[in-house]
Write a protein that binds this DNA or RNA. Structure first.
Lengths: 150, 150
DNA sequence: CTTTAACGATTTAATATTAAAATATTACAC
DNA sequence: GTGTAATATTTTAATATTAAATCGTTAAAG
């Protein structure tokens, strides 16, 4: 979809890049979402499990930063994972404001089963690009993600 | 954030590209969202106004495709825009299943005021990349967005 | 014609998300 | 120590989003 906007070259290029970026991310996440639906997990929930799996136990606010969600939402996401029995909360004894979130054994098993499937889906989705293009894309996106908020 | 995942090269590259893509899109849309907040519009609502502004009156399902949202959601998004008096619905007389959505004069004025500001924000956000890099990014994202659902 | 299938929109229920206010805890200045 | 500010989490209220079921309309097959 082009922008149909008659601005300066700079503006047209920026708008086009923004739109394509948004649509690509939406398209990919919709498909990832779809395959997670089969095991009744949201992308947020999966993000938490994945972070704990690869990084070990984390504080709730650290998890929020990892998956770019607000604090109030983290409470709910983790509530739902606790209900499901895949993570548990542990109040930090040194600083009782913190809560550390752990994977339970069931959670460990779940993410261990799930992750390889997730990898397959991602590889397939990104397969529209060559490996070199994927690396280029990652580098470009990294610059955007890192740049400071306005 | 790296993936910490010891898979094949192909898998690592795909995962990294996927994560960077998601985070870049999240980061940018969060900032866009923030500036739309000032005028009390969601990204979905703005997307509808923008589509109508640049493409003219559209059917409700066409709008849904443009902004990648489900039908049930479109009903609500448009309801809220109607309440605000910036769009109006018109039942298609030829095929009464269709509803055509128009900008009202107030809506026309709103998007006309808003769009230049939106452009400035997008230009600023994408400014982390050179113009050439933005074009590269758009081309790469386009391939992903276009590829068929799995 | 009548029936069936397809389609667009709406409703409904469940969940997700955010922002803001409230609560609990810690750290620090005095 | 006490009070104040800062921090982590929770709660709350308002919206957004999705999926599924439903209703009305159209098109097409018999």
């Amino acid at each position: 979809m082009s922008t149909h906007y008659q601005g300066t070259e700079t503006e047209r290029v920026a708008l086009d890049a923004y739109i394509k970026l948004s649509r690509a991310a939406d398209a990919v996440s919709a498909r990832i979402n779809h395959h997670l639906k089969e095991v009744n997990l949201t992308i947020s929930q999966f993000g938490v499990l994945e972070a704990l799996y690869h990084l070990g136990p984390l504080h709730q606010n650290e998890l929020g930063e990892k998956i770019l969600k607000t604090g109030g939402n983290m409470t709910l996401v983790i509530d739902n994972l606790v209900k499901r029995g895949v993570v548990c909360r542990e109040r930090d004894e040194d600083d009782r404001r913190f809560i550390t979130v752990h994977l339970t054994e069931a959670g460990q098993n779940l993410i261990q089963d799930l992750f390889p499937r997730h990898v397959r889906v991602v590889v397939q989705e990104m397969g529209a690009l060559t490996q070199e293009e994927q690396a280029q894309l990652a580098a470009l996106c990294r610059k955007i993600g890192l740049s400071e908020p306005v």
